[in-house]
């Protein structure tokens, strides 16, 4: 994968049938479990989102922007550029939602975090609660990580029954377009 521009997952609206297999595969790829839905240990939490408008159904997810607004605005440096695209460092996230507000495609979510089969809790100061604090499930920034570390690449691309999802290497696409354009020109030249 070329490191200069981050890869991202491109969806073909004409191929997508809205089945949500990508979301299921995504959820399963980000947790422990075996081969069946029942073997998954925590609730499903997809990192791309089937979205319907008119007759179009497409999953929307992170574009791994080069000048990523989410990374720009994060007050705690929890979102960083890596050779694997734009990544959230969960441990640094405070759940401020600024990233969610600025993302141009709505790729960011605030998702519950599960540790050892139980939701991770956060401590909230609440004068009305006994002891002045209460605990509630922590919601932290969550988005596509291109299945970093997964053999075989992003699970959604693998799983789509319609092959509507592609992992795009922008530089490779550009090179191919250059080549196709040059080829077309060479044919024109021969004809002339």
């Amino acid at each position: 994968m070329h490191a200069r521009l981050s890869p991202f997952i491109l969806v073909s609206a004409s191929k997508c049938i809205g089945c949500r297999v990508c979301e299921l595969a995504c959820s399963a790829a980000h947790q422990r479990g075996g081969v069946s839905v029942g073997s998954l240990q925590v609730p499903l939490s997809p990192r791309l989102y089937l979205t319907s408008v008119n007759n179009v159904r497409v999953p929307i997810g992170c574009r791994h922007c080069e000048d990523a607004p989410c990374a720009e605005v994060c007050p705690n440096n929890a979102i960083i550029h890596t050779t694997d695209g734009v990544q959230v460092e969960e441990d640094r996230c405070v759940g401020c939602k600024t990233c969610l507000a600025v993302c141009p495609v709505g790729a960011m979510e605030m998702a519950q975090v599960w540790k050892r089969g139980k939701p991770a809790m956060r401590r909230v100061v609440d004068p009305s609660a006994p002891g002045g604090v209460r605990y509630e499930p922590a919601s932290l920034a969550s988005k596509c990580d291109l299945c970093r570390g997964r053999e075989g690449g992003p699970a959604c691309v693998d799983a789509c029954p319609e092959k509507a999802l592609t992992l795009v290497d922008p530089i490779e696409v550009k090179r191919r377009r250059n080549f196709e354009a040059a080829l077309a020109l060479s044919r024109t030249y021969e004809e002339v």
């Binding site: 299921l24 595969a25 081969v35 069946s36 839905v37 029942g38």
Partner: peptide, 13 residues
Amino acid sequence: QPKLLPGVDVADA
């Protein structure tokens, strides 16, 4: 039977 996850080869299972 257990509902197999996407990417699991059903025929193989």
